[in-house]
Amino acid sequence: MDFAALTGALLAASLFAHRWRSRRAMVWLSIFSLGYFGFYRLGCVCPIGAIQNVSRAVFDPSFALPWAVLGFFILPLLFALFFGRVFCGGVCPLGAMQDLVMLKSARAPRWLEIALGSLRHVYLGLAVLFAALGARYVICEFDPFVGFFRMNARFPIWIWSIGVVALSMVVGRPYCRFLCPYGVLLGWFSRFAAKRVTITPEDCVVCHLCVDSCPFGAIRRGGAEEAGEAAR
């Protein structure tokens, strides 16, 4: 059931992004994803956390990796190869929560965004290392949203969670852009995407309003294509 829901949501996100080009439809899909994968399924199974299970299975042959976990890990990456990061845009419950609380996104200098974005690569490396050693699953342990989904986080995690959600009100998707380890993998795969989200050439008057207004810094001057490292 969960795998079917993920497949359907990814197909819908691909349709909404490339065929319908509908922001409204993507928002409704995000709300569904937040409700189902987040609050109903309590944030589990999650492609982001599945990084740890897959890493442990690679380095520990005795570890039994559930097929559902492997499927959740691979499927969004496959969609990224064909349609770009549609998982981020409309299916990830963590991204949806950040979108729904955002009031107005402040823009940081480009150099600062790049520096903060490098933290995701460090986090990914640490998560793989700890999981491979069988030490701990740091992605799940420090997930800032699972406490809201399950309402059972420890007090320090609650403080961390509230801080991330509060920051999301004024910074577009801070967790996705600066910490999400799965976003690193999706970024790598989406560089080879067969289809990319583009600004419709016949409608573009090169005013750059979209560049200045995008809360995620996903649009670059001089190019209409979706940025490979953007959250959208």
Rank of each mutant, 00 (worst) to 15 (best):
F149H: 10
I219Y: 10
L186T: 14
L179Q: 09
G43L: 07
A64L: 09
F178R: 12
V165L: 09
G228K: 09
C46W: 09
A127I: 00
A68C: 01
F73V: 05
V184N: 15
F72I: 00
A230P: 08
W28E: 05
A5Y: 15
A4K: 13
P93I: 10
C204N: 08
F16C: 01
S168Y: 06
A9C: 02
A230G: 13
R24T: 04
Y40V: 00
F39C: 07
F142D: 08
C176E: 13
S62T: 01
C92N: 15
R19W: 15
L185E: 13
R136G: 01
V164K: 02
S14A: 07
Q98N: 03
I157T: 10
F39W: 10
A57G: 10
H208Y: 11
H18P: 02
A12K: 08
R196F: 08
L126Y: 04
R150L: 04
N53M: 10
R85E: 09
G134D: 01
N53R: 10
H121W: 15
L75G: 12
G84N: 13
W111V: 13
F82E: 01
A106V: 06
A224N: 13
T200H: 11
C204M: 12
L29Q: 04
A13V: 02
E141G: 05
L112Q: 05
G38N: 04
F32L: 10
G222F: 01
G43M: 06
F73E: 06
C92L: 12
V122C: 15
L15F: 12
W28S: 03
S118F: 04
L42A: 08
E202A: 15
L75N: 10
L119D: 01
Y40K: 01
W20A: 00
L116S: 08
I157L: 14
E225V: 11
L78P: 11
L112F: 01
A224G: 13
L75H: 09
E226P: 04
C140V: 01
R56A: 04
